[in-house]
């Protein structure tokens, strides 16, 4: 990183962003905190209840279960998408006429509205009209994601892998193209296997983009809402209800302002913690490699 002069007038450049984000983030966040300590019947009839909603949320079994499911889901998709993304990226030819086409096809799932992703997988996986559902059943395996919790889970994971592995692959490919060719030639001279190239040449130089990939995927999978909402509706039962969906039901479904607000604050605090931990590792990397 080159030397940057100290200049507090740079604040002028940042001011518009500050104003718009203050409007769309700070004011709402303060409002959520206000709501979270009150019992609000309507805006003229409200009572201060202290931390009651927090106690209620933290002891709410459905909240804890949704949280556990959320963690399980996020780590499952991360464990699949990161290695698969790297493997796919290594397969993309670097200077072929096909390269742009492959990249565009890879980018496709990222540009599809999330509810359409849900719809696509709904019509793809249904056991009556879906290609996948019918194919699996034809192989003699009874598969029905709308009634079997395990099947619903597997379908959701398959959908998320379909939806987001491209992001990891594109990031990793961007990182791979930045590795100078001599590194590969040196590895070849040493007779390194493909595995050794990956381990000693590529992975160390991919660290930066991989941190970004893990951060984005962890955060985005942690707030997943639309796709399961469309695909399974959180069911069968509550077996695929994740945090955002539970929260949205409370907030705009039942309009429970206080409890939903307390839920939001707790949710946000965890995001803040994860985000900060990752930011530290990004900053640390920037300092190590000037």
């Amino acid at each position: 990183m080159s030397y940057k002069p100290q200049n507090n007038r740079a604040w002028l450049g940042v001011l518009p962003v500050l104003l718009i984000v203050a409007f769309s983030a700070v004011v709402p966040l303060m409002t959520v905190i206000n709501y979270s300590v009150q019992d609000i019947l309507d805006f003229n009839t409200r009572f201060f209840v202290g931390f009651e909603w927090y106690v209620q949320t933290l002891n709410d079994e459905r909240f804890i279960e949704a949280f556990g499911r959320q963690l399980a889901f996020s780590f499952t998709v991360l464990a699949l998408e990161i290695p698969l993304g790297i493997a796919v990226a290594r397969g993309i030819p670097k200077n072929s006429r096909l390269t742009p086409l492959i990249l565009i096809v890879l980018a496709l799932p990222l540009l599809i509205p999330w509810n359409v992703v849900g719809t696509i997988w709904q019509i793809f996986a249904r056991s009556d009209i879906g290609l996948l559902g019918v194919a699996i059943n034809a192989m003699g395996i009874s598969y029905n994601y709308t009634s079997e919790p395990l099947h619903a889970w597997l379908t959701l994971v398959a959908m998320d892998v379909w939806h987001w592995t491209s992001l990891v692959a594109l990031l990793a490919f961007a990182g791979l193209t930045a590795i100078p060719q001599p590194y590969y030639q040196a590895a070849e001279l040493d007779g390194a296997s493909s595995w050794q190239v990956l381990r000693y040449v590529e992975l160390p130089r991919l660290r930066g983009v991989l941190i970004i990939a893990v951060l984005l995927r962890l955060m985005d999978s942690f707030m997943i809402y639309t796709e399961p909402f469309v695909l399974t509706g959180g069911g069968p039962g509550n077996t695929t209800t994740f945090l955002s969906q539970y929260l949205a039901t409370m907030a705009v479904g039942q309009f429970d302002l206080g409890p939903a607000a307390a839920f939001s604050v707790i949710y946000f605090l965890f995001i803040l913690l994860f985000c900060w931990l990752f930011y530290q590792s990004v900053v640390k990397r920037d300092e190590e490699t000037p």
């Binding site: 303060m30 409002t31 905190i33 206000n34 709501y35 300590v37 009150q38 805006f43 003229n44 409200r46």
Partner: peptide, 11 residues
Amino acid sequence: MSWMAWTLPTA
């Protein structure tokens, strides 16, 4: 500002 539902402790 009433929709923000201010209370003394949060203020």
